[in-house]
Amino acid sequence: MNYFVVVAVGVGFALPVAVLMAAIAQSKAIERALEAIARQPEAAGSIRTTLIIGLALIESLVLYVLVVVMVFLAPKMPTFQQMMQFIGK
């Protein structure tokens, strides 16, 4: 029972935490890129390319968590019937 509670909490909280941190990181990256573009508009092209690559790399961290949750953690979740058995109904 405790095991399933831990799995459920992990599944529920893993992705939001990852998304939160990745959002902070992406906002920092975009902030710096915008500052750089405002300071040097002629370098906008290469800055944009680097920014998009960096954003995709940051975002892939969230997707690692998604894979961990969907592939490894979610199949261990109890079904509805199992949950009812644990509760005692």
């Binding site: 995709a56 790399l57 975002e59 892939s60 997707l63 690692y64 998604l66 894979v67």
Partner: peptide
């Protein structure tokens, strides 16, 4: 490997 797989899998989902 995991980056490519995870992006495609997440988008498809």
């Amino acid at each position: 490997a995991v980056r490519l797989f995870a992006n495609m899998y997440g988008e498809e989902t």
